[in-house]
Design a protein around this nucleic acid. Structure first.
Lengths: 174, 174
DNA sequence: AGCGCATATTTCACCAGTGAAATAAAACGA
DNA sequence: TCGTTTTATTTCACTGGTGAAATATGCGCT
């Protein structure tokens, strides 16, 4: 696998050449977008690599961790679809897989019996508690050399992008 | 689709609860990572949405744009695999698709006849020139409200993360 | 009681990408 | 010249995810 920095260098040169041909190109914005996509692609690989030995993919694990992080340890398929940005079809597959492994249970809600209630099991909680700590060092390694101000800044700017993207998506509807 | 900001709020609460149970969690770093992944997932969707009407996916288009951006308009499969982070299998599929549409040609190198040379065609160049400008407004929209300093900062911090990730991946080998 | 709506599941056909193995061609080096 | 290595392609089985349509269930309203 080629280094990320080599790809970035290559992009910087490429953008320059494209800009020469298409002058209206907003080079800075395009570079920021490509940087975001490259970096997060690499982070994604990093996460998947950690999960692979446990035969879990990121979607499965994220779903489980969301349940872990809820006050009552439960949620519904629809809600999980929203939070994980998955379709219903895939959510069904994910819950099937997690139920089969005994990490969650699937039951029906008492109040609204259309509703399926998904709940993390004690086994599921144990699993998450065991999985998380070994991931921490490599997560933190991505931000080595960042001052507190750097982290605050990156946090702030990413949240700002998120707001803009929500705005953009809201406009699409109208 | 749920708004990104709603997902972020939900994550902030969830992280707080997880931290209460797993105190060694590097909350700030995990939040930064999740923000990066969420934001770039959304950017990715944005790009794909633009490309969909042309029956192209991001990998195909990125490959084409890389060729467009090269000084001589050509490259080789291996090089493109590196730059696009694709496997050889998939690169073969991509080039097949682009050749079929007449956007690139596939030939053999004169110097090293093992080597396949992929070159963008005049049609390919026209296509890219036509595709790019309509994408600009929506790319730039992601950075509305950013000062020049904000953009410089985001650029700098993302490149810093990239360097760290390269370091991390280099360590894996050793 | 009955209609409309929301929620979830299943099925099906599909797209995108992976990983491993087999094949081929040609450069390169002893 | 012969073996090794590099580069690319193809095939195969597989994973992960999408989108649409059909089905079922049950809430809430009139």
């Amino acid at each position: 696998m080629t280094r990320l920095t080599a790809c970035i260098d290559m992009m910087d040169e490429g953008i320059g050449r494209v800009k020469a041909v298409v002058p209206e190109l907003p080079a800075a914005d395009v570079v920021l977008t490509r940087l975001l996509l490259m970096v997060s692609g690499c982070l994604q690989e990093e996460v998947e690599r950690k999960l692979k030995p446990y035969k879990l993919n990121d979607s499965d694990f994220r779903t489980l961790v969301i349940l872990f992080s809820r006050a009552d340890g439960s949620s519904t398929p629809g809600e999980l679809c929203d939070f994980t940005a998955q379709g219903a079809t895939n959510m069904t597959r994910i819950t099937n897989a997690l139920v089969k492994r005994g990490l969650i249970t699937r039951g029906t809600s008492a109040e609204d019996r259309r509703r399926v209630v998904i709940r993390i099991t004690p086994d599921g909680r144990r699993f998450v508690r065991k999985m998380l700590p070994p991931m921490f060092p490599r997560v933190s390694a991505a931000y080595i050399g960042f001052s507190d101000a750097d982290k605050r800044n990156l946090d702030r700017l990413l949240r700002k992008v998120a707001v803009n993207l929500d705005q953009l998506n809201a406009d699409v509807q109208s």
